[in-house]
């Protein structure tokens, strides 16, 4: 009787020890002390670096696009103003030509007041 009880306890203890050992081995306690994989670390660092770069490039592109749109708007405005001025000048020139055509300039005023001639002189200019 006593030996049966002892045998039973032995089996129970053996089963418990077996499962404990199984659980311990399954937990891989020796791997926690090992260093992390350097390739994985490098990949992670590279990924973070590229994400930062991407954000900076996007910010730069946004700034330049905004500046370009402002410059484009100013240029369009200047072109519009120049076109308006050119149209006004053209109109003024047409009007001036119409006025000058309508009022003929006196021949005497248009001509040079003096020229060298071979006529006999009427008077001689001397020091005043």
């Amino acid at each position: 009787m006593t030996s049966q009880i002892a045998r039973l306890w032995t089996v129970v203890v053996g089963v418990v020890v077996f499962f404990l050992a199984w659980a311990t081995i399954a937990a891989h306690p020796w791997q926690q002390a090992a260093a992390a994989d350097p390739r994985l670390t490098a990949v992670v660092a590279r990924q973070q670096y590229l994400q930062r770069q991407s954000a900076q490039v996007k910010q730069l592109v946004d700034q330049r696009w905004a500046a370009y749109r402002v410059a484009l708007a100013e240029r369009k405005l200047a072109i519009t103003r120049a076109n308006i001025a050119a149209a006004a000048n053209a109109q003024a020139q047409v009007q001036a030509q119409a006025v000058s055509a309508a009022i003929p300039a006196p021949a005497a005023a248009a001509a040079a007041p003096a020229r060298v001639v071979t006529l006999p002189p009427l008077v001689i200019t001397k020091t005043s």
Binding site: V116, L119, T125, T127
Partner: peptide
């Protein structure tokens, strides 16, 4: 009628004046 007023500047040069004025200043006289 000649079209211009002939004014002698010296013995060799005569100017024809149609309008405006003409004057001489110099230190060879006075």
């Amino acid at each position: 009628a000649e079209g211009t007023w002939a004014v002698a500047v010296d013995d060799t040069l005569t100017l024809g004046l149609t309008h405006g004025g003409l004057a001489t200043s110099g230190c060879d006289r006075r």
